[in-house]
Write a protein that binds this DNA or RNA. Sequence first.
RNA 1: GCCGACGUAGCUCAAUCGGCCGAGCAACCGCCUUGUAAGUGGUAGGUUAUGGGUUCGAUUCCCAUCGUCGGCUCCA
Length: 647
Amino acid sequence: MPVSRPAAAVTCSGDIPHQGINPGGTAKTLSPRNGREFYLTQPPLRRREERGRMEEHYEQSKLYRIRHSAAHIMAQAVMELFPDGKVTIGPPIEDGFYYDFDLPRALTPEDLAGIEKRMRQIIAGRHQFVRRELSADEARQFFQDQPYKVELIDGLDKGGQDEYGNPIVERPVISTYTHDSFTDLCRGPHVENTGQINPSAIKLMSVAGAYWRGDEKRPMLQRIYGTAWETPKELEEYLWKLEEAKKRDHRKLGKELGLFYFSEDVGPGLPLFTPKGEMLRHLMETYVRDVQTRYGFQHVWTGNLVKEDLYKRSGHYENYKDAMFPPMVDENIAFRLKPMNCPSHMTLFNEMGRHSYRELPLRFAEFATLYRYEKTGELNGLTRVRALTQDDCHTFCTPEQIESEFSLDLQVIKEVLQRYRFTDYRVRLSLRGEGGKYVQDPEKWDKAEAALRSALQANHVDYYEASGEAAFYGPKADFMARDVLGREWQLSTIQVDFIQPARLGCSYISDDGMEHTPVVLHRAVTGTTERFLGVIIEHFAGAFPVWLSPVQTVLIPIADRHVEYCRSLAARLKALGLRVEVDERGERMNSKIRDAQKQKVPYMLVVGDQEMENGQVALRLRNGENPGAMSVDDFLTRANREIEAGD
RNA sequence: GCCGACGUAGCUCAAUCGGCCGAGCAACCGCCUUGUAAGUGGUAGGUUAUGGGUUCGAUUCCCAUCGUCGGCUCCA
């Protein structure tokens, strides 16, 4: 059952940071995962603006000081254990803090218990946090045995980067904080003394590897994650939320509900879908397909294999060849499994002959399974796979049509997200920033950016702008939706593309009789079927809305003499389009109900002597509600109403 | 890919110091014919992920490989 949370507005005010850092508490594992972008994006820079906005409040908060101080206390405890260890950085993060160390040996879970115990002792000492400001040379002197700190000091000294790697404009004041026997390079702020941390509201969570400064070419450090709150109750709530997230884990539910499996025989990141799992995929794809058809999108099919050469021309090869499966070579021709659709759609556009401006916009939609060679360490259930089915669409249009086409995409996305009960979402509108990475055509940019803004406003979509976050080929809008646990997922995306159509020679004849290059909008609604399925399994905790449930109704005969009647009922319901099963096992009714409920089947229809006599069924719902006996027609009316309503 | 942990029956887990690998659920075969979250008896199920090493003897210790998990702010 969905966890209740305060009713969230459909949209939220654009200038209010949307608690990307959420002191109210969401799970550590719940940090937003970026969706796959389609296309030639630059490696995403840190979202400075976004970060800045959400951290403003957080950094002032008591919780921030508590966590920051807890990180120092933890560092002290670790350094007592490893006097020769090297400290690096230890910032507060969403829901807690971490500290990275370079230690002579790997930490074990037993170490964690010891460190946590020592932290409590230090806290009990009520040691003052003392700030001291010093010159860069003094700092270097003080931290001479701590090479990572010296590196940080050098960075600060020449105004390079802060601990997050952001450029620093002004040379900052260098300061240290000391409590008890431990001194750390730190700009603060901290609590006044260690006694202000509640020893029962902290917990060390895990050890993990982390590269120094996130750079895989630099040393691998050991990171300890911890969580800290103001009160034990908050800690408990946080841990409860983690438990809840664990219960909803789509990998666990996928197995329990028998939806999909991974097999070593087939390979990592290549999910196998059971009949129920495939039914879900089918329903999801059919739904989006129908919506798209209704909005004037046309469906195309461009296969799975493409000559490598095409990706050299489109520019993908250069940027993404590592993420493609290795080529299949036939004589002199190399083929690749298709990792994205755009070049294929544009090629199709070209092959269809000359295009008049009167044909535009032309909207090509495709559910194609793409193959991407994701690094093994990054595979993760259905949310990160190597075979992914994108609900991809490319709209070829004139520059003047950008606004109306973008608007159309917005409407499709709004409708689909609504259907899946994602009502709490916002849009990040990524615009061009300073610097030379962007396609040089200021006029096009200005027009496109204005068109996007205008369409977002006209459609009453809440959005915020992130300048400098656009792809080099054009602005884009990403939909970030919160699930019932408050976790944010990037789902839909719309991207304007000024460049690839030109690279692949797409053109149309305008009313001036001249050839022009169309603009292309790339768009995904649910992103990929696999990932979206993973997300909605967790969003619904496996209890899918009736329209989407792979099995909508289980008929439960009480005794063997009711089986025949159930079979005929099932046939009747099936003929009307319901997905029905009869539980003919020789089990007790109670046991059948239990199993159906565990499988989250929306309707259980119990049939015994009474029902058989009166031509009825006794309805029970998966939430335990028991509407009781009713005529088959009444049940059908109810079921159809709920299916129609998207319940 | 890198760091760390883990891999025992379909699932969830157990097995002392290195000494014949065990239980619940599921499956299968019976009995019961059931009224809103587990009726009952029995049967079967394993080269302990794979390959190698140490040892009289390896689920247990060592090495490699594969896979999974947590991270590494990472992705068209």
